[in-house]
Design a protein around this nucleic acid. Sequence first.
DNA 1: CGGGACCTTGAGGCCTCTCAAACTTTGTGG
DNA 2: CCACAAAGTTTGAGAGGCCTCAAGGTCCCG
Lengths: 246, 246
Amino acid sequence: MPPAQVIPLHAEPALFNPQTRICAECGVRKFALLGVVDLADLDRVHTHISSIKLSPGQSLYSAQAPGLAAFTLRSGIVRLERTSERGERRILRLAGASDLVGMEAMLGQTYAADAVACTDVEVCRLPRSLIEELARQQPELPLNLMKRWQSALDDADEWMTELCAGAARHRMLRLLLKLTEYAEGDRVWLPSRQEMSAMLDMTIETASRLVSQLKREGVLDTPDQRHAVIHNDALMAALRSDSLSA
Amino acid sequence: MPPAQVIPLHAEPALFNPQTRICAECGVRKFALLGVVDLADLDRVHTHISSIKLSPGQSLYSAQAPGLAAFTLRSGIVRLERTSERGERRILRLAGASDLVGMEAMLGQTYAADAVACTDVEVCRLPRSLIEELARQQPELPLNLMKRWQSALDDADEWMTELCAGAARHRMLRLLLKLTEYAEGDRVWLPSRQEMSAMLDMTIETASRLVSQLKREGVLDTPDQRHAVIHNDALMAALRSDSLSA
DNA sequence: CGGGACCTTGAGGCCTCTCAAACTTTGTGG
DNA sequence: CCACAAAGTTTGAGAGGCCTCAAGGTCCCG
């Protein structure tokens, strides 16, 4: 359950379902899939949304498992990963607050990847039947879903062009830049070296060497093991000088 | 125009629009987006489908251009590519017969990548308004579109795990395997070394060396510069022994 | 026949991997 | 609270894979 601070609802109609109240107060709702849905409609629906909390390393769902629900991220970062035919784990992309993951469940398909929490994570579970029921009342919902599919595809394409190609140092710099997109405050989540290596297709040792080097260069500081402060101008300067030499 | 062999339409109702007749005779229609659409509905629609032919290297659409139509591939292979911020071209994935490309146009967005013909290509141009008009009559159409988005995402994810990671030789073997998916007969399209290097993130020289080596090993033959015969058992054996040593 | 685009091959060097060891952090139990 | 184990990180040295630079070959087309 999310931390249910009971804030009075002013202009909203009376809501009967306690979960709907939580939705009404949700900080990411207006950016999320159900942001287009009337709270009143949501309140009338039979299937229930449930809130789930995960700790780093915990799995949200697994590839090949029957997809019964999609999930909206309320906070934290989730990684989507796959195991290659050679048996190596590869991180495909990250999802952050207000992102929707596991959309393939809406098509009755099995999940296409593993979803694992990178940080403490809060998600809302949206069962397939809920979305279908709401879609009947809200014709915009399928359109919003399609836009989310396209934006997942854009993310995948960007990941591919920027994080999968070029020298190791350059890929690491691009990763740091990407991590700032998921920042909460001035600190960003700093992946483990293992995670970095699975995202950037390099060894743990190379990832470690690069992070150490960039720390020495003043591109980032690590107040603790799982957080970094990234100095944007130094990062940008490093990226620029990197492009020149290439 | 596609080669319009006039085959009599038996049980079908009379079709008035000459393009609809071409659709009726299209070899890939039942696998394509409009496979779920009644020919009679298609015949009544105001917006027109048009057929386009492209030669290798010709552009179907460009990234950032306003997306006015999606395209169903009737034959040939199209590559989707992007230019990274460093200015390097990267091939993201391939599309083959019955695939739908440029779906982002259905959302009123600009195209997310460049689409370029790799071989001789025939496509059907499906304007946005056509899809919207048909969707009103055919509620299955949006669902089919969503499935295609998901499958594009699956392709992107598979490309990422299998073609973007590991040793150069392994990536090349995986590419040859992928090319067999687009085979017409026993010959597969063999990309130029330039294209290979943009798909696998390696230099032209490395791609050339690997192809030469695999030819010597009997994994493939090249009857001409743009085609190969791939010997599946040798390819599989190479992939297996590759995984063992890793 | 000459030029251009593409492919192939070689030599040398750098980047990244492999293997190994030491260090740091985290968690557990005394 | 400390000791210890386990996991994760850092650093080094050496090897090897891939890149760079360069030259020569092949095919196609004017």
